[in-house]
């Protein structure tokens, strides 16, 4: 026989199984590329849309210190979005396509950002729980098989730690404050707890793409594993604050060495994913508006750059 007929895909799988990183110009199965473009761009969109619920409180932050921190955090989210768009672009997906897919609803973003932020306590709860859940996922993704995605994640994880700690501090101040402030913290926790658990996505048996992503080492832990890790880490943090997790089924399971928790309302999850959450329309409308209002700035910058280049050329010719 003239050698063995090992397919490109089998070679690719063996390469990934050997814990090697895939770089932009390497051969990869088309489905691997598409999966990454979908996942990285959705991740980027989540960072960008995630600026909105927090920006809601910048003008009303309770102190200058709180305002500076919130501004820095929202600016970080913009940065994270850019690192991720940059990673997705290495796969050949133009930025404009990603933006138009977001605006048309073809691309999704994390459903958590379709919930409103009516109270200052939400600024704390988002940093603590939402960023906390994101960190759980992102730490795993620092070891993802696609090099540019992994590198973006390393940078993001370093910065997320600030997000989570500042969030916990906001909630802690309220929890240790007046009874009204403590009630405000508890009310916010009640609203964000379950959506935070939903951030990890459907249960493993309901998540058809997960198995392939695990095989390609894009993901390295299942949704349910990550969710359990998050619950185990977070419950003691809730207890420290003297607050209560809004789940009557939550209890430590000595045999498993984990917390048992109640059943997630997946109807709510799918309903929000499908566009019927409290703020879906508002979030996209705001993004479209900001994008369109910025069009003249992008055009003017291009015109200016062309003019400068032309002037330089003319000066060069005259000299």
């Amino acid at each position: 026989m003239m050698g063995t007929n090992v397919s490109l895909e089998e070679n690719f799988q063996a390469y990934v199984d050997g814990e090697n990183k895939v770089e932009p110009k390497d051969w990869m199965p088309e489905k691997y590329r598409r999966t990454l473009i979908r996942q990285i761009s959705q991740h980027a969109h989540s960072e960008i849309i995630g600026m909105q619920p927090e920006a809601n409180w910048i003008t009303r932050a309770p102190s200058l210190r709180a305002k500076l921190i919130l501004l820095a955090k929202v600016q970080d989210e913009a940065g994270h979005g850019l690192y991720l768009y940059s990673a997705a672009e290495t796969l050949g997906e133009p930025r404009e396509t990603m933006i138009s897919d977001l605006q048309s609803g073809k691309a999704k973003y994390s459903s958590i950002f379709n919930y409103p932020t009516p109270s200052w306590a939400d600024m704390g709860t988002i940093g603590w729980l939402v960023d906390g859940a994101a960190i759980q996922n992102q730490v795993m993704l620092t070891r993802t098989s696609y090099g540019p995605y992994a590198r973006a994640m390393v940078k993001i994880c370093k910065e997320e730690s600030f997000h989570q700690r500042q969030g916990y501090e906001v909630v802690m101040k309220l929890a240790q404050g007046t009874p009204e402030q403590k009630a405000m913290a508890q009310e916010s926790l009640n609203r964000w707890w379950w959506p935070s658990l939903m951030m990890f996505g459907p249960s493993d048996d309901e998540s058809p793409n997960s198995a392939q992503s695990m095989k390609w080492k894009i993901k390295r832990k299942s949704n349910d594993t990550l969710r359990q890790e998050f619950v185990d880490k977070t419950v003691p943090q809730v207890e420290y604050l003297g607050l209560t997790v809004p789940d009557s089924d939550l209890k430590w399971n000595e045999a498993r060495g984990h917390y048992d928790f109640g059943v997630i309302n997946w109807d709510e999850f799918y309903n929000v994913v499908q566009g019927n959450g409290p703020c879906n329309k508002e979030r996209i409308a705001h993004h479209v508006e900001a994008h369109e209002e910025g069009a003249w700035v992008r055009e003017a910058a291009n015109a200016f750059a062309q003019k400068q280049a032309q002037r330089k050329k003319n000066t060069g010719a005259a000299a």
Binding site: S86, E89, T90, R95, K155, R298, A301, F304, A305, A309
Partner: peptide, 29 residues
């Protein structure tokens, strides 16, 4: 006409070290 081209970014973290690629971004010039 409102599309900006892509640039690769390299940073020197301190003198004595080389510039290192950190990612990309869009800009008009």
């Amino acid at each position: 006409k409102d599309h900006w081209k892509l640039w690769e970014v390299f940073l020197r973290s301190k003198n004595g070290l080389s510039h290192k690629h950190v990612g990309s971004l869009h800009a008009a010039d």
